[in-house]
Amino acid sequence: MAYSRIHQLVSVVIPCYNAVHYIEECLDYLSEQSYKDMEIIVVDDNSTDRSADVVLRWRMRTGFTRLTLLQMPRNAGFSGAVTSGFFLAQGEYIAIHDADDFSHRDRLQKQVEYLNAHPDIDLVGTNYMAFEDENASEQTLSNWLSYGEDIVSRYAQGDHCVSHPTAMFRASRFDKLGGLTRNMNGAEDYEYVAKFIQNGYGVDNLHDVLYYYRLHSNQRSREFY
């Protein structure tokens, strides 16, 4: 029997590892989303700081009841944490979010509207701004994304053009494809989008800037790029 999902609910999955300085701001922005039919799933990947305590205090302070905190008994790595969050998701849609970033208040609304209006699209990312941790007012527009039919051709060439933490996808596709691979370290996000395309699922990006990507010395991506 097919897994029963909650119609129009968005499950926001946040992998969190030693993000004590950022996770509260991330959650504050999410709580102000114009789209209110959402749950938040924070997967604390056995952090060595007090990230989990901050999440629990935030839930108590805000009274946001649709928040689940999963504390991993050991460090599962990025793909393990993300996929664990996917398994907990109850929504029709799953949105990905990094613990050290924040989203525009209309991000979820616009992505849900797009997926509702485009049944041929199964995963949609957004444009984003990057900013240095010390100066959020100076932001740089991304320059590597693609849109429409260009996306398929770029992935066919081995290129990557969808920003993973901006993605929202139909949870029914996760039910068929599973989660992120653990066979590679640093390119799991590329492989996951490529898996959608290889299985004939539509992928697109919104031109709207709906995500803000924080650059700092401790972020995971600096290990690889």
Rank of each mutant, 00 (worst) to 15 (best):
G200T: 11
D45G: 08
S47Y: 01
Y155A: 06
M38E: 06
A187F: 09
N143C: 10
N46A: 11
V209R: 00
A117R: 11
V55G: 09
T166S: 11
Y93M: 03
V54H: 06
S4F: 14
A117K: 09
R182C: 06
H97Q: 14
I23L: 02
W58L: 04
S103D: 13
R59S: 08
S84H: 14
E32L: 09
Y225M: 01
G158V: 05
L210W: 03
L69T: 15
L27I: 05
L115H: 10
V162K: 09
G178Y: 00
H164M: 08
G63Y: 02
L9K: 14
D49F: 00
V54S: 05
A52E: 09
C161H: 06
E39V: 01
S142I: 09
G91K: 05
G80D: 01
Q111Y: 02
Q71G: 12
Q8T: 13
V209A: 00
R5C: 00
M72S: 15
M168L: 11
K110Y: 01
I23A: 04
G186H: 04
L115S: 11
H7G: 04
I197G: 10
S4V: 14
Y3I: 09
S31M: 04
S221K: 15
E92T: 10
Y213E: 13
M168H: 09
L115R: 07
G148Y: 11
P165I: 00
R57W: 04
G91R: 07
V13Q: 12
Q90C: 04
T65G: 05
S142W: 04
T126C: 04
H104Q: 05
A19L: 00
S84R: 15
I94T: 12
A19V: 05
M72G: 13
Y114D: 10
D208V: 01
L88R: 15
L177W: 01
G158D: 07
L141P: 15
A52Q: 10
D28A: 02
D150H: 14
F169V: 04
E188G: 10
R61P: 06
A95C: 14
D101C: 00
F169H: 08
T140C: 07
I121M: 03
I14P: 13
T83I: 03
